[in-house]
Amino acid sequence: MKKLSLLIVVLLVVAIAVPSLSAARAQEKIRVAVVMPSTKSDLAFSQSIVDALLAIQEERGEDAFEFVYSENMFVVEDAATALRDYASQGYDLVIAHGSQYGSSLADIAPDFPDTAFAWGTTVDTFRDQGITNVYAYEARSEQGAFVQGVMAAMLTKSKVIGIIGPIETGDAKLYVDGFKAGVLWQDPEIEVLVNYIQSFSDLALAAAAADAMLAENADILTGTAQMVPGAVNKAKEAGALWFGTQANQTSLAPEIVVSSQVYDWTVALNPIIEDVLAGEIEGEAYSLTLENEGLRIEFNEDFELAEEVKATAEEVIQAIIDGTISFEIDEEGVLTVVEAEAEAE
């Protein structure tokens, strides 16, 4: 009897408390939806945004931050349907995580003026089209790529370095060009082999591209996009070194990964979320850089990297942060390294 009445009391307390609690929280709870091209576990582009959202959820708590996703949205019209659907369901922030979604977003955003949208990777917020509720984010991946290129130039013995990319545009081109610039900045004598294999998913072709580079005596490889694990294993077999990007790729081959450039989208997402919470949607553009730590060079702790190389890498990182080394891209898409004059003492 006693137990039963106790139970009833507990239940009553819970029944009264829970709705009021959840009501209080509901006001603060922010709901985010993300639409992305590949799967959430691609160890590359799509995974990087999911990791960031998970980190934010960890920090803010599941009661305050909820997110949903649509993955494998290679078909742009399906992605557009998903974006529209999330917006009409009242999500506070809808993220279009793929540069191919831009034109759809420009059509959708004006229909939902109270919803915040974010589009990556780009700097275009459609301000010139009179749209104010679209944020943009991008990664200046040439920065970390340059640092890794400098390291690679110091580590190579054969003076041949290979870079594998998917197609020659966007983020991949930025990484490849930055890496190459870093290598040549450190040592113009080095031969840099570049191959865009025209596929994001063909692991066997990536492996064959690595084979071709290794046969040319390359002793350091790097690459970007989700098909690179095929190349990593070839590097491992041949004892060549590997530099990763987009996510920490150390787990693929702990023996040979020197470092990875890691994207941390929370740097872009947190200010957007603050805006949304404050109700002041302003549609700004954010870039991940080494300076704001949206880009980080994560060293593989199991790899014995010479102190000298690490020190140089850190110097270069500092120089990029200070702006003494910066990058310019011209009309033709050619990247040049700009070194500011050392300040007068």
């Binding site: 034109s103 200046r140 966007g170």
Partner: peptide, 8 residues
């Protein structure tokens, strides 16, 4: 001339 041109 965009840093990361979109192929479109």
């Amino acid at each position: 001339g965009a840093a990361a041109p979109i192929p479109e």
